[in-house]
Design a protein around this nucleic acid. Structure first.
Length: 362
DNA sequence: TAATCGTGGCA
DNA sequence: TTGCCAAGATT
């Protein structure tokens, strides 16, 4: 059990350090729960410098919850393009619609209700409650677990879901009643700027005199986390097809799963060898349109894209339809679009790499 | 619980 | 180059 003088000491040094060292970030110039919500979702598993331009653009386009609620989903995805983890965008919009419809556009201020809103989990709920509503609630992210696991030499594996609860209980004992926002943000800022994963700057740390790992010289042994497996490799051929008018064939991905709802040049999975590249492309066209007269060229350059759990190897084949008539597409989620229209569709990064290889402007 | 879901930075 | 890492949520 922690003694009260330790807790007071912890709060005092952390709050003083945060007050003097906090970065001036766009979302720190407001306490509007809607803007805090957007920033927290964008910051999930994403670095601050990456988020800043997306945040600025997003709140300009969707300054109110009503604006976001009424926007077409594909337009929202377009604004999220390149930021990754696209279910965040769909869930954010779904959550905002829930709040507009069920709570008269007032974001709930209690944890239980907040957790029922789409896209809001334990961390984001705590962040909104503490930062926007000044409530003494924990907001435990990777920074907080790293900082606290070092200070208290906590050995639990932070990759396990239930470990977060251990840290939440600890934060409940540490967090000050009246300074919840700077306390939570201070813990995260300390993790980001000082208590870094590889090379913690303990000499500059305001809590080093309270840190057990530091006293034991074992800072980099914490946090404890199990290793993750290597990405599984998959080989594809991207089929870049143009009709006689120079339009490109693009296809929409399914509404669930990887890169849901995004557009792409049709991908055909192949086994590793390159001698399958052209036959696979031809097979795709055969299955989609039947027999067509096409002038093919195989691109020498290939692309690679690494996801959290997958590694794509991409070959590119370009084809031009020689005959005038292209069969109709029926119910397939495909379209023929002009090169100038590509910019109106959301394309994920691997597709942008394919465009570069195929020398298509985007 | 464990797997899924992006992308860019960095040692 | 490779692996790790970043203000996690969902299923």
């Amino acid at each position: 059990m922690l003694q009260s003088h330790f807790i007071i000491e912890f709060q005092k040094y952390l709050l003083k350090w945060y007050k003097e060292n906090r970065r001036d970030l766009p979302w720190r110039r407001t306490v509007d729960p809607y803007y805090i919500w957007i920033s927290e979702v964008m910051l999930q598993q994403t670095q601050v410098d990456t988020v800043i331009p997306y945040y600025e653009k997003f709140i300009t386009h969707y300054p109110t919850m009503h604006a976001l609620a009424q926007a077409p989903q594909e337009e929202v995805l377009k604004h999220w393009e390149g930021l990754g983890y696209y279910s965040r965008a769909r869930n954010l919009q779904a959550g905002v619609r829930e709040v507009v419809e069920n709570y008269d556009a007032q974001i709930p201020s209690d944890r239980k209700t907040l957790l029922n809103v789409k896209g809001i989990g334990p961390y984001t709920a705590g962040a909104i409650l503490s930062i926007a509503y000044q409530k003494p609630e924990p907001a435990v992210d990777g920074n907080v677990m790293r900082v606290l696991s070092r200070i208290f030499q906590i050995d639990e594996d932070i990759t396990k879901a239930k470990t977060r609860k251990t840290f939440e209980q600890l934060v409940y004992t540490l967090i000050p009643e009246d300074d919840a926002s700077p306390f939570n943000q201070g813990l995260m800022e300390l993790g980001a700027l000082i208590c870094k994963p590889k090379t913690p700057l303990c000499e500059a740390c305001p809590l080093s005199h309270l840190c057990q790992a530091r006293q034991a010289g074992k800072q980099t042994d914490y946090p404890v986390k199990s290793k993750k497996l290597k990405q599984k490799g998959i080989h594809y051929v991207a089929v870049v097809l143009q009709d006689d008018q120079g339009r490109y064939l693009i296809q929409q991905r399914p509404s669930e799963g990887l890169l849901a709802g995004f557009w792409e040049f049709p991908l055909q999975e192949i086994s590793a060898s390159t001698d399958e590249v052209l036959p696979s492309a031809e097979q795709f066209i055969e299955e989609t349109f039947g027999t067509l007269s096409i002038k093919w060229s195989v691109c020498e350059e290939t692309a690679q894209h690494i996801f959290s759990h997958l590694k794509w190897q991409l070959n590119v084949v370009q084809g031009k339809v020689l005959s005038g008539q292209v069969p109709s597409l029926q119910e397939k989620p495909m379209r023929w679009i002009a090169e100038t229209e590509l910019k109106d569709y959301p394309f994920p990064v691997p597709q942008q790499k394919i465009m570069k290889i195929a020398r298509i402007a985007y």
